[in-house]
Design a protein around this nucleic acid. Structure first.
Lengths: 123, 123
DNA sequence: TCCATATTTCGAGAATAATCGAAATATGGA
DNA sequence: TCCATATTTCGATTATTCTCGAAATATGGA
């Protein structure tokens, strides 16, 4: 993962509404939620939310797919994994055993593809 | 972990200089680095760096301890763990097996205390 | 085709944050 | 005690980001 990508992702999570949105989508699981449902659940104006959803999507932390008139957003957990990996890269210089337990996260497979087959990509 | 704490931590990492500092401290390991050494390594003015170090310390991602005339800063990996935990809390509603691998991170012990015994606390 | 629903884009105003030079504080040693 | 080193605090300037109302776009159905 490149630094600029990590930077954008952390900045995305460093804003209250966006952090709320991401956590909500994590809870929602692979099905995700529509923009409207998120807007209602968090009581955020649709246009404001749209801006935040765009930021989250740009960061790779969430993805979107249109289904009928609505657009479903869902969290990408592998992005979280990549983020942590980036943070812990080169941990403790030559003695990774100092932080080994947390670094195990690096090898864990996450969220197998094909979880949501019934969606169209956003144009 | 509380939301406000997570928010502050993510915002701390969402800024280039601070992300660089944290990664540098992760590399440096439990010994950490002095503010001066960080300033030189990253080519950031001491007063600007001081502001960023204060933000990182406020967030709990780094801690400081004075040693002689210098102040050593070091990364707290357990803060990273807590952050990921917060993000993945309630993952996938009732079906945590959907994201189980990444969630294992939750139980890993990290960076046992007592790694740096020869330091004085900052007043 | 026309309409209602769902979401996004645009432009502007207000709030926050980053950076810097200058000055202040803390520490150890001569 | 006085000085040099290490770091922080202060105040101001510039840049970025958040939020909103209004208008635009996309979709499905009557």
């Amino acid at each position: 993962m490149e630094k600029s990508a990590a930077l954008i992702a952390f900045a995305a999570l460093g804003q209250e509404t966006r952090l709320d949105v991401f956590r909500l989508l994590v809870k929602a699981g692979p099905e995700g939620m529509t923009a409207g449902a998120i807007s209602e659940a968090l009581d955020v104006r649709p246009n404001t939310l749209s801006t935040h959803l765009a930021a989250l999507a740009r960061s790779g932390l969430v993805h979107a797919s249109r289904e009928g008139r609505s657009i479903h957003y869902f969290a990408d957990l592998s992005a979280v994994q990549a983020l942590v990996l980036y943070l812990l890269q080169d941990c403790c210089g030559g003695q990774p055993e100092l932080c080994a337990p947390i670094a195990e996260l690096a090898n864990a497979p996450v969220q197998p593809p094909g979880a949501r087959p019934s969606a169209r990509p956003i144009p």
